[in-house]
């Protein structure tokens, strides 16, 4: 029920407040009535036929690097932790 998918906007119909998004190989028409502004190429979170929010590529990258950092090997982290 709460499943939502990130999908890329491939075309827009501003008049009808709809967009076509690509979900992997699948194309789908969704409503953009809940978004303030959106452009072709943006990634949006699609839920029950509506875009709920835009996705920030910068924040996605930041989260991934935070995860990589957390997973770095403990010896190295210890060594860093030991530094005054």
């Amino acid at each position: 029920m709460c499943l939502a998918m990130p999908a890329q906007v491939v075309s827009l119909d501003v008049q009808r407040e709809t967009a076509t998004v690509a979900l992997g190989p699948v194309r789908k028409e969704i409503s953009i009535a809940l978004l303030e502004e959106v452009a072709i190429g943006d990634y949006v979170l699609v839920h029950v036929g509506f875009a709920l929010h835009k996705l920030s590529p910068e924040e996605a990258e930041r989260t991934l690097s935070m995860m990589r950092e957390a997973g770095e090997n403990p010896e190295r982290e210890l060594a860093e932790g030991d530094r005054p």
């Binding site: 990130p6 979900l23 990634y43 996705l55 995860m67 957390a70």
Partner: peptide
């Protein structure tokens, strides 16, 4: 798919575990 596969990556999961 972008923004899905990266967040299912095995190496990240093992590092976080």
């Amino acid at each position: 798919m972008k923004y899905i596969d990266e967040f299912r990556a095995r190496d990240l999961a093992h590092g976080l575990a």
